[in-house]
């Protein structure tokens, strides 16, 4: 293989590796249990506010300014027990127990 062809092959291989790494790493969409968001959550903006008379106290500054609504903490999965056991094998040939 001449140097020019070799360079092309190497570049293609490098690009493939990087793209694959980017796709696989990170967003977790391929993990078991992933549920795709409803399509409208991605594309649609919130609907316009209703044009009706209000009879509720405004609940504006309830919290830190513009603090984003945060994700819920999941219940931690059960942890497996930790077992430390040493099994000693007898080896008649070595003369040791």
């Amino acid at each position: 293989m001449n140097p020019a062809t070799s360079k092309k092959v190497m570049s293609a291989a490098l690009a493939t590796t990087l793209c694959t790494g980017t796709l696989i790493a990170g967003d977790g969409t391929g993990e078991a249990g992933f549920v795709a968001p409803p399509r409208e959550m991605i594309q649609k903006k919130p609907p316009a506010p209703p044009r009706v008379a209000s009879s509720a106290e405004t609940t504006g500054s309830c919290c830190c300014p513009a603090a984003p609504m945060s994700r819920t903490e999941a219940k931690k999965p059960p942890q497996p027990p930790v077992l430390l056991i040493k099994i000693r094998e007898d080896n008649p040939g070595s003369g040791k127990n």
């Binding site: 977790g28 992933f34 549920v35 795709a36 968001p37 409803p38 959550m41 609504m69 945060s70 994700r71 819920t72 999941a74």
Partner: peptide
């Protein structure tokens, strides 16, 4: 709030 991953909150 009950909001996980990319689900609707």
């Amino acid at each position: 709030v009950y909001w996980f991953g990319n689900e609707e909150p």
